[in-house]
Design a binder for these strands. Structure first.
Lengths: 224, 224
DNA sequence: ACAAAAATAATAGTATTACTATCATTTATA
DNA sequence: TATAAATGATAGTAATACTATTATTTTTGT
């Protein structure tokens, strides 16, 4: 029996739990690869079925539609990252060091976690960067929110917000700053690689530059 | 002859210039209304044609596909807003006051500009908030960028970056901070209305709160 | 005022997408 | 080993994202 990390997922996101079968795990694995490769707009259940060697109808037994599958893998990522953050800042007592560590985790390239054999976190991180906001930028965000689809993201935002308050209990906008850090860690990464004129980062395209920018931004306002 | 403001658009965005005919102007006008109402995913040229009272093929003579139409109206907005910013900060000499004014313009609700009869800027502003990032979050962002589709956005970002440098010539990340301000002015607005747990703004949902947050964020790091 | 050119309308057609339905077969489980 | 559950194979539908053709209307240059 191998040790595997399992992220508890919202049950209304799927029709059948993809963690519980080989086909289900293949759906997750290959959807991550395929969305990463083709982008979410070009991603279809038919292509996914072909990649797995099953049929379109087979996928539909697990997920109602591709949007729910996207929300599933994205909220899986937030759950996994929340776990990483707790784990990796466990012994850090200084809130400033902790917040710096969180910023680093958010803005660095992720490497594949061997504890989760069917999920490639490195690809998933790229998906978060390019497709993450499409999970909530919809006309049905209200209903999706009622179904708690964004709970892992909100939880992460709260965790970060609490660390901000530890740094400065009088800071007025812990949640907005937290969501700004999270979103900007990814958006500046996208801009750096695709629309570099929107950033000040040089050609070597190192994520450290984003970390420096965010640290500068965050600590000047939090420590004010 | 009525006085109308015209925004010069990138000619590779369209097949036939929509500003030059009644049908073209109707395409712009009704696409803004329809995208605002149904969201970009549900928006189709067929529905648009029905709304206008023309045919699908008629729309295709103006725009190759709905993505280019989205990019068109979004870059129109950035062009228009860039003009507003220059116009409304013309007599402001203090760079700090100027930057504050820009933040206010970016984060406030926009009202319809009567100088542009076929464009409802108020609706367009809502589209920027909910659909704006979909214009660049694609697999073909590289080619689109080569075609200069994002020039108005970059120009705005440069303008804001220059004002930031006027405030503090030693500030290291003028472009990244500018793109952060612009994107966050919209994203915090979206969160405030749709995912309020990601913000610290109260129920009255006033845009002033976003302005305060952004001013706090920007001026603590720029004036450091 | 009239011919030529350009734009529009009307219609049809295709490949792909986003599903739903049915039934046979394989696999897990009690 | 019977039975249920999951999967596979196949088919079908409505909508989407286009392209093509031809007829009609509108614009324009002389």
């Amino acid at each position: 029996m191998r040790l595997e990390v399992q992220i508890k997922m919202n049950e209304t996101l799927y029709l059948r739990d993809p963690e519980q079968s080989e086909l289900g795990r293949n759906i997750i694995k290959h959807s991550i690869q395929l969305i990463h490769k083709t982008g979410f707009e070009s991603f279809t259940f038919k292509k996914l079925a072909e990649a797995i060697g099953t049929t379109e109808a087979g996928i539909y037994r697990y997920f109602e539609n591709k949007h729910k599958l996207l929300v599933y893998i994205i909220s899986w990522y937030w759950g996994w990252l929340g776990f990483q953050i707790v784990y990796q800042t466990k012994n850090v007592n200084d809130p400033i060091a902790k917040l710096k560590q969180v910023i680093t985790l958010l803005a660095s390239n992720v490497k594949d976690d061997i504890m989760t054999s069917h999920v490639d976190e490195s690809l998933l991180h790229q998906i978060i960067i390019a497709e993450g906001s499409k999970s909530y930028l919809t006309k049905h965000v209200g209903e999706d929110n009622k179904q708690q689809y964004f709970k892992p993201f909100k939880d992460l935002c709260n965790t970060v917000g609490e660390i901000i308050l530890e740094c400065n209990p009088n800071y007025q906008y812990p949640h907005s700053l937290a969501s700004t850090i999270i979103e900007m860690a990814h958006l500046q990464n996208f801009f750096m690689h695709n629309l570099p004129a929107l950033t000040d980062f040089d050609k070597n395209k190192k994520e450290d530059q984003i970390i420096d920018f965010l640290n500068n931004l965050v600590f000047s306002s939090v420590n004010k």
